[in-house]
């Protein structure tokens, strides 16, 4: 009888260890950004506000991650002495090749999200959703769930899908929680396309 209990307990322990320790590690694919970019350095030298680089177009659409021509404005030749910058110029600026940035906060295709409505009408600060990205000295690795295709930033840090009360992610639940608090509830097509 004891043997049976041990077998049950060890099976359970193994599964618990696998589910809590190993699963979160193997769930996400980790990829490095193409260029080791420092928001901190650029915030000090190039532009103080997020919108200086992550700008809005005239029609209100959000331009997102700046394209190479914005970078080339300053980096046609090396401005500093770092190997990263030299590498960036050789690999991307000189051959005029767009770096394939991995967007942490890219929503799935069926989501319509208007930055300008949140920033200009809702007075939401960039940091509220994106964290203090602007103050970091290096880009984090990009983590993606290969099954759902969601970035870990969209999902949020915890692995479990239930009982989430935090607002760390940018899932539909997170959007809805915030909208409910403000009494701004729309129909499905308000945010989906």
């Amino acid at each position: 009888m004891i043997g049976g209990k041990i077998a049950f307990a060890s099976g359970m322990l193994l599964a618990l260890a696998g589910g809590w320790l190993a699963f979160p590690r193997i769930l996400y694919q980790t990829r490095q950004q193409p260029v080791n970019f420092s928001h901190k350095v650029h915030a000090e030298k190039a532009g103080a506000k997020c919108e200086d680089c992550h700008s809005f177009r005239d029609d209100g659409t959000y331009a997102g991650i700046p394209t190479l021509d914005k970078c080339s404005g300053c980096h046609t030749a090396a401005m500093g002495t770092t190997a990263e910058e030299k590498n960036f110029i050789d690999q991307y600026v000189t051959p005029n090749r767009e770096p394939q940035w991995l967007s942490y906060a890219q929503q799935p295709e069926n989501v319509y999200f208007s930055h300008i409505a949140h920033v200009k009408l809702g007075h939401v600060k960039c940091e509220q959703c994106h964290g203090n990205e602007g103050g970091t000295g290096a880009l984090r690795p990009y983590q993606q769930d290969p099954i759902s295709g969601y970035s870990r930033d969209i999902w949020g840090r915890p692995v479990a899908p239930v009982g989430l009360r935090n607002e760390g992610g940018m899932k539909m639940d997170d959007c809805v929680n915030c909208h409910r608090r403000q009494g701004l509830e729309y129909s499905c097509l308000g945010c989906h396309k």
């Binding site: 049950f8 359970m12 618990l16």
Partner: peptide, 12 residues
């Protein structure tokens, strides 16, 4: 059985 029960108590 223990493994299955344990797995249900994990996020996986």
């Amino acid at each position: 059985g223990g493994g299955a029960a344990g797995a249900l108590l994990t996020p996986a």
